[in-house]
């Protein structure tokens, strides 16, 4: 599904190249649950951003679903966001002025899903995540864990094939974190959604089935998780 070949990312500063990523080559298949780990500043988030096409690599090629997407025009990239990629953020990034319901609805509106279809999908998600009672509340009226649930629901609304999560439990207490990770695991195993997450926690990484260890912009280890 994802094929990265010799991905490099550096910032040139006064003639000196500061590498963030060096010669990253890896393949991620449909249905995998990959955790990217590593110390602060290792380049985890940059790698995830490149996979999410939020940043462009300075060098190398990136194929998504067999198509070269290394540098893509805005229109095509947005089409991919609408149909294939869901984002989950550490700070949730819900839109403060929208209710829970409207937050989940937003990607569907962009995707131009019909209103009855929209209503049933949202109802389904609310039901599934047990937040029906919260649908008319605004994000600041929810706990962190609840906000992240909404964030995930929103990412799932457009029925993406892959979810990119940047430290999804970084701001959560451990009980809530566990709940979120269980949810990810279930989504991966039952719905077959590909998940790539960046995490600091070895424990969270164990929920997936593959771990990429990165240090100083280089993939040091690529391990399978034994369940």
């Amino acid at each position: 599904m994802i094929q990265l070949t010799n991905i490099e990312k550096y910032y040139a500063n006064k003639g000196i190249k500061n590498y963030v990523l060096r010669l990253v080559t890896t393949t991620i298949k449909q249905g995998e649950f990959v955790s990217i780990m590593g110390p602060s500043g290792a380049g985890k988030s940059t790698l995830l951003n490149i996979i999410g096409m939020l940043e462009e690599p300075t060098y190398g090629t990136y194929e998504f679903l067999g198509e070269n997407v290394t540098s893509l025009n805005e229109r095509k990239r947005i089409e991919l966001y609408r149909n294939h990629i869901g984002f989950v953020f550490q700070a949730y990034h819900l839109i403060d002025e929208m209710t829970v319901y409207e937050n989940i609805e937003a990607p569907l509106l962009y995707k131009k899903v019909g209103s009855s279809e929209r209503a049933s999908r949202i109802a389904d998600l609310l039901d599934r995540f047990n937040i029906v009672a919260k649908k008319d509340l605004f994000p600041n009226q929810l706990s962190g864990g609840q906000q992240q649930l909404v964030g995930i629901a929103r990412a799932l609304a457009a029925q993406p094939s892959i979810i990119l999560a940047d430290e999804p439990t970084g701001n959560l207490q451990s009980a809530q974190a566990e709940e979120i990770m269980e949810l990810f695991k279930k989504l991966n195993q039952e719905d077959g959604i590909t998940i790539i997450q960046v995490t600091h926690s070895e424990k969270n990484a164990q929920y997936g089935n593959r771990i990429l260890h990165i240090a100083d912009g280089v993939v040091k280890e690529d391990l399978a998780v034994l369940s």
Binding site: L54, R75, I78, R82, H93, L94, D96, A106, P107, Y110
Partner: peptide, 16 residues
Amino acid sequence: AKEVGVRKVLGSYKKQ
């Protein structure tokens, strides 16, 4: 700004 960022990754065109 945050709203803009989120909307962009949710699939909003700049035009929109």
